[in-house]
Each structure stands twice: as structure tokens, then as C-alpha cells.
Design a binder for these strands. Structure first.
Lengths: 322, 322
DNA sequence: AGTAATAATCGAAACGTTTCGATTTAGTAT
DNA sequence: ATACTAAATCGAAACGTTTCGATTATTACT
């Protein structure tokens, strides 16, 4: 492998001069710079990232940690992160699973965006204590090295509930995500607040798991208990689709008539089920872009403030007036 | 940051002994190993990846290069790669866009899996010449450092076409992907071979782009030309869905009656459109797992042979007998 | 007990950069 | 021409590991 030493030798200058030239320092004269550049090109020289990281004590990589790669969910988020990072000279390392947990301590990345409940708060705080910069998307954490960009779950849940109430529904199910999920907790909390303010509602909760099987199980229970038209707020679309499937294939109930359904996330699938699934929309791409922007600011020492991603209601024929 | 030096000092031994102990060498006595381990733990010592890579001349990272993160397409593929890699102590770096191209030359990864047409054959061959190990999923390349794990596009296209022919269809459209795409080319080639063998077919081709707009454009053209029932083979599902949407929302033609549709890839969406989209299925997860297995073998110097991913037909009501 | 063989530990070089302080070269003013 | 200043280049140390060859400690054998 050709190293800076080879370039130096061929150019007849010292290693340090080559380094300065290649990094665009104005210490070295234009003529020598040009010559060095030419030779570096000719030799196909590319600096060794490991050596550079070691010396610089920074990698110019940032990581993003996801629970898994499955689902379409993350595509746009990653796209948003990537686009923002690119022009700032940082590379993105996408990780999922146990390997993720090694990345920060081993200093393979300078900082990270976290959307992965397999990281405990303690672990994240420990990383932050050691000086790593973090942006969390799935929890609230108070630490100078941690910033958060959170979804406006409360507003989203309120939007969904109000939509159902406006349509006259008074028997309501909420299908929640895993107990530890921040998003699920925030959404559920908002739902309960609204329920408490509307004493006339007949309300119950079912624990889903933010996945299709969870939605199917909920559907089963709802179908068995069915007596009169109900409204169901699935705290994410994935479950709503699972529920949808179960209902349409295993029962004679119809969505939008007997069961009025609203989801959360506006995943692509919502557009393809009939009737269209009502849901809560927000820009994944913007979420990613904002997160990486914040992270880079932190890495360069700029002060940052917590940010919030706004949401909106997408109406659909899965909900009709009672 | 605590380094091996700190551990050595606290343990009262030399740096080299610590290194041997931590790497499980049997040169060092069990007692000292235990002591060193304990102290390393106590100090929260974690080896610096950059230093280690620099010395070892390998990173224990492998990359996977994708055209983009969008679409659900890659989720299962990545999952397959990740699972295989995990137990072998390698970490996965998922990259897309311009940054990808820097990863290999800068030696941030030891090898890569490629599914990204923005890499030219020349570029890949150059990397291989420099000693990097590559597994390509989207082209055929002959080089000792390059192995390929390809989809059986030919069989898939044949399966789809035979399905249509069995159902008695004789007017057929093929909607192709981007001209440079290997998968599109292979599929189209197989289609043409079959068309040539069946002289009675009325056959035409439309250039899509492997995306929804491409499918919509094709749909528009087909609808305008419509005279009698036709069969359409979209060379991927994405386009089939786009076509599907256009037809159902903008025309009075119905899928499975006037237009008989088959796709390729068996993406999740195919299960949610009504009628279900007939398509060609294969295991993305297995594809990923096989690719990473091959890559790791190459990295450890074992010989590998090209592999093939087999496909099967998924019937659906989007196709009916003529 | 003394020596030979073996086991355990150590010191130092090397991996490929960056960067500080020192040195050489060129430039300017007298 | 000479001295002085500024500009350009250089040498060497440092980043944190791994690993070779050398050194020291231990064990086994006569």
C-alpha cells in the first residue's frame, strides 16, 4: 500500500511537507503543492483512515443505531441523515444489533444518533460522560453531551383522537406499543388525557407490540367483543395494518363501517390498503436531517437546543362518521 | 481516555504483557491474565479501534454499498448480512452515496458487498486489484478478489412468462428497468428468448425505471393503446404497483380482468393490493447471508465459488385465465 | 546444587498520519 | 554585500496498538 512516505520520497520532500500540502496548508508554496498533488495522484495515494483517526483523535464518522433494519420505516430517515452529512465531510455508519454497542467505546465513530431501545439510558449516559456526542430520537435524557429531536407524539395522538371524536365515535380502543417504548408511552399518555376530559367515552386499551402480530391479536379481541361500531387508534401503522388484515380476512366486519381505524406514522402501506388508512404524518427525512444537523453542531462545539418534529393528520376512509 | 498504558501501569506489568493477556495469548500466566482483566474492567478500558486497525492492517469491518436507503427493499437483505456477520466478530458498515466510494481506498473496511450501480466495473476492478475482497450482487465480474452471488433472474423471468402463457395470454407487455441495470437486462433477455420461441405472441416493451413513476408511465401508455385483454410483466414489483395504481385510479380497466399483471421481487406491498399481485419470490435474507458468508471466506483466504439465489412463482389474482 | 530447557515477561520497533518547534531558504532593506 | 525578517521546509515526537526478539524467572533433570 502506498503511504505518505512514498509520496514524500518520490517528490523529494519531507513527509511533513506532503502532509501540509495535502491538507491545504498555506505554509507550503504553490509550486510544491502542485507537484505533490500530482505525484500523489499518480501513485494513487489515499490517506489511511486508521492512522489519521489515531493521530487526530477523531474519525469523522457518525453512527446511527437502529433496533433493526426491517420495515420500510427507516429508509427516509437514513436518507435525510445521509444528505445532511455528506456535504459536511462526515461518513455515516448504520448499525443495528450487538455490534452497535461497541462502536462508541472503540472510538470508531465520533458521535451517534440513537433510535434503538436496546440501548439503556445508563449506557447512553455513560457514553456521554466519556465525551461522546449523542442525539436521541426515542427518549428524553438530560446531559450536556446529549441532545434530543423528538416527535410531537402528544400533538399527534391528540389529532387522531379529536378526529375520531369529531366523527361522533364514543367507544374507543387504543392499541399500544411495547411498554418500554418512549413513543408509545407519550402517545398513550396523550390519549388518556383526552379520554379523561371526555367522560362519556367508553374506552379500553390493548397491548400490541408495534408490529403486525400485535395488531392481529388486538383485532381478534376486538372482533370477539364486538357489539356496536367502534373506533380504534393503533399507536402505529404497522399494527393498524395487522389489525386491518385480520379483520378483513377473518371476520365479516368492515373497516370504516363497523371498525373505524386510525394509525400513526403514515408508512407507505397506508396508501395501498382499501379503504385508505387514516394516520398521523410527519417527515422522516426531516427528522433525520435535523438529527444529523444537531449532531454535527455538537461535534463542532456549537450550542444546540432540543428540537421537535411536527405532525399532521391524514384523513382516510378507514374512518367515517358514526 | 484510558489506554493500554494505563492498564499496564496500574497492573505493574509491561504494555506488551497487557496486550497478550487481553488477546488471550497463552504466553501469559493465568494469574496475571486474571489480574489484568480485572484492572482493565475496573478502568473501563476498551481498545482503540483506529490504533488496532493501523497495526493489524485490517479493520474487521465490512461494508455494504446500496444505491439508496429508500424503499423497503433492503431491510431483509441487511438483516441477513448482519446476522451472519455478528457471530464472526465483524461489524457492518452500511453506506450509500458518494461517501461509499471512499471507504475502501481509505481502508475503513476490509471488504464489501456491492448492490449499487453507481460503482463502475472499472472502479470495482481497481479495488480488487489493490487487494480488497468484494462480493457483487448486481453484475458479473471476473477477478480473483471478486465473487458474485446472483439472483436467478433468468429462471424468474421464465417462471413469470410461463405463468402468463399457461393462462392463455398472447398479448404481452414487458416493462423494463433502467438500461444499465444488470437485473433488468437479465430478466429482459430471458423474456425475449421466450417470446422468440412463441411466434404467436404479440409482444412489446416499455422502458420503466424500476420505480413507481416508471410503472405509472407504462400504465398510461398501455391504457391508451388498450383494445383487448393484455398481460403485463413488470420486471419489478415497484413498477407493478405504480402501474396498478394508475390503472385503478385513472381508468376503468380492472387488474386481473383487462390487465393481467405479474411483478418481480415479492415486496411486502404485493400482499396488500387487491387483487394480490402475482410475482417472483426469493429470500432477501438468504441473499444477504450468503453474500456475507462468501465475503468472510474470501477475507480469511478460503476459496469460494459463485452462488445463485433461487426463485419461485407466487400466484395471485392479478392474473387470471384469458 | 547447578545447569539446561522452558515459560513468562519485557523493551522497542512499527503501523501511517499530524503537528510542534527547529532549521534552512528566500526576500528585503540598509 | 550584510544583516534581519519572513517564508518554506524539515525532523521528530506522538497517537495506541501488536509482535518480534531479547531478557529474566521458573521448572525439571542429573
Amino acid at each position: 500500500m502506498v503511504s505518505i512516505k512514498d509520496v514524500a520520497k518520490k517528490a523529494g520532500v519531507s513527509i511533513s511537507t506532503v502532509s501540509y500540502a495535502l491538507n491545504g496548508s498555506d505554509k507550503v508554496t504553490d509550486k510544491t503543492t502542485a507537484k505533490i498533488m500530482a505525484i500523489a495522484n499518480e501513485l494513487n495515494y489515499v490517506p489511511n483512515a486508521a492512522a489519521r483517526s489515531l493521530k487526530r483523535q477523531q474519525t469523522r464518522n457518525v453512527g446511527i443505531f437502529l433496533t433493526d433494519f426491517g420495515g420500510n420505516f427507516y429508509g427516509d430517515l437514513l436518507q435525510g441523515v445521509k444528505e445532511d452529512l455528506k456535504q459536511k465531510g462526515y461518513a455515516l455508519v448504520v448499525c443495528s444489533g450487538t455490534q452497535s454497542h461497541r462502536m462508541l467505546p472503540e472510538r470508531m465513530i465520533d458521535g451517534a444518533i440513537i433510535l434503538d431501545e436496546t440501548f439503556s439510558n445508563e449506557e447512553l449516559l455513560k457514553h456521554a460522560d466519556r465525551g461522546h456526542k449523542l442525539v436521541v430520537l426515542d427518549r428524553e435524557l438530560n446531559h450536556p453531551n446529549i441532545n434530543q429531536v423528538l416527535l410531537d407524539n402528544k400533538a399527534g395522538a391528540a389529532l387522531a383522537m379529536e378526529y375520531l371524536l369529531e366523527q361522533g365515535h364514543d367507544k374507543i380502543y387504543a392499541v399500544s406499543g411495547p411498554p418500554g417504548s418512549y413513543d408509545s408511552m407519550r402517545r398513550l399518555h396523550a390519549v388518556r388525557t383526552i379520554v379523561e376530559r371526555n367522560k362519556h367515552l367508553e374506552y379500553s386499551e390493548i397491548a400490541g407490540d408495534f408490529d403486525k402480530p400485535g395488531g392481529e391479536a388486538a383485532a381478534k379481541q376486538i372482533a370477539e367483543e364486538y357489539a356496536r361500531p367502534v373506533a380504534v387508534f393503533c399507536l402505529n401503522d404497522e399494527m393498524a395494518i395487522g389489525l386491518y388484515n385480520y379483520i378483513t380476512t377473518n371476520t365479516s366486519l368492515v373497516i370504516g363501517e363497523h371498525i373505524h381505524l386510525v394509525g400513526f406514522d403514515n408508512i407507505e402501506l397506508t396508501r395501498y390498503v382499501q379503504p385508505r388508512l387514516a394516520t398521523i404524518d410527519y417527515s422522516m427525512r426531516k427528522w433525520g436531517a435535523l438529527a444529523s444537523e444537531q449532531l454535527l453542531k455538537m461535534l463542532s462545539g456549537e450550542p444546540v437546543d432540543h428540537e421537535r418534529i411536527y405532525v399532521s393528520l391524514v384523513k382516510g376512509a378507514s374512518v367515517n362518521p358514526l
